[in-house]
Write a protein that binds this DNA or RNA. Sequence first.
RNA 1: GCUGACGUAGCUCAAUCGGUAGAGCAGCUGAUUUGUAAUCAGCAGGUUACCGGUUCAAGUCCGGUCGUCAGCUCCA
Length: 576
Amino acid sequence: MENEELKRYWHTAAHVMAHAVKRLFPEARLGIGPATEEGFYYDFDMQESFSPEDLERIEKEMEKIIAEDLKLEKVEADREQALNILREQQEDYKIELVEEMADAEEITFYRQGEFIDLCRGPHMNSTGQIKAFKLLNIAGAYWRGDEKNKMLQRIYGIAFPKKKDLQEFLHRREEAKKRDHRKLGKELDLFSMHEEGPGFPFLHAKGVIVWNELVDYWRQLHRERGYEEISTPIVLNEALWHRSGHWENYRENMYFTEIDGNKYAIRPMNCPGGLLIYKSNQHSYREFPIRVAEMGLVHRHELSGVLHGLLRVRSFHIDDAHIYMLPEQIAQEVLGVISMAEEIYDTFGLKYRMELSTRPEKYMGSIEDWDRAEKALADALNKKGADYQINEGDGAFYGPKIDFHVQDCLGRSWQLGTIQLDFQMPQRFELTYVGPDGEEHRPVMLHRALFGALERFLGIIIEHFAGAFPTWLAPVQVCFIPIGENHIQYARKLSGELEALGVRSEVDDRDEKVGYKIRQAQNQKIPYMIAIGDREIESGKIALRHRKEGELGAWEFQDFKQRILEEIRSRKCEDV
RNA sequence: GCUGACGUAGCUCAAUCGGUAGAGCAGCUGAUUUGUAAUCAGCAGGUUACCGGUUCAAGUCCGGUCGUCAGCUCCA
């Protein structure tokens, strides 16, 4: 079924659900009930809250409505008629919608049996066309998405023309759950969260191995691309944040503290500290572009309800960089950053798309500067010939930005990298450089991140690889499995040889059967397992097993060393 | 922050109407010396998130706090 048709299907399913709810709970008032990217929902306003048992009752009633095979009839109405119908039904939310419609706008209702609903359509012909459906969950949602409004109850559901499709959908959901980085993080001993620090992740030893590999890779890439690396403090005097504009624009997300009676802030962004370094020296146009990177730890007060494993936290490391340059260097530098982002995402086999976000309501500086900055970013994207989407009003308060969005295994989209052009900070901090004319000028500044937040990136790749990291990232790369007691020493010798080459290797010398050790190594997603018994000691070969490819037979140890070293060196990424 | 649900051993879960908190896995000890996804036995493990209340008696009922989960809003 085509996307448009599927949405029509889901929209009709939403009407069937609303119909069922009105039959069971006549006092419920309707909000809106559209199709989404994956399914549908309908919002209801009702005194009591729906329980899971209610969902079952609603599902049963939906079955009835479907069995009745009611025709969906389009009913046109003028404004007065529409309001009359809605007033009679006391559908206050719908009345609000009609009242806001432009005069010229056509008003339509859809009727199925005794149920009639203000709706633009289109719909399926009859309720009987809905074959397989399921109500998934109940959640609160603000009327019109505004937290100042009343919270309604939203019921989510999914529907398909074939039972098989529904089963597949539910199966996919189960599989996605198995990949949840919070679950895998526990099972693989990568990280944990604790009540003592909600939103502040604890990385365990194995998590730190992955982390350090990511950072090593990041450093190498930045060296190659002409960046220098700095490190600046986490706690800085509040005055700095007044000057940067964060106090004014970002205060509600910041943590504050006091030292010797003076006010300090814990940084929510890295840039002001970096600017102080820039200002501690004179600069010449000849140095430009100056590319300065910092893996900077920031803290932000996020609402408690949004915290989510490593994907949404209150303290995280931004793989930040600031580029100081001449206005005419903007396009070239932006293109450089885009190409760097491509290289990184390709390394992990991640798909991404770009978005350009423009001036928000809360902004600093002049409109002319903003127009100039927005044009510069758009020019770079066009020069690249990139496909991109525009998000009006979604920019940072100091400048417009290009964002990189990556899709995870659940189909959720995450903002990772970002490129933000900034004419404001250089002014606020009075940054200068000496031009060819011997005069002082103001540089242009660009903020950018590629991983975005390293914590979030780690969470995403845990799910993306389902915990089976590429060998270069795997906390344990090789596990030796001695068959019996007599083979432990030899296994240790070989393992030591690998460790000497920088390979992370272990020997499972526990008194357990081979099958048990294999199972454990598989569950830990260790890329290579090597069984060592009498045969191997006699022949000098190893019995190799790969977590995905299974048994690889007898290998010369030398050949295996070459294989794994090459795999690590090239940061090979298996299919996921 | 808001709405709703949930919180029992390291993990996954059980405990009927309010009546002595249990099991599997993991851990420890012992036996076993193992050839490609779980060897057997024994032992230990708990202030049932926390605080308060009702009751002869609370994991269970009530109130509060904290946290988690599904969303909303917000965001790297």
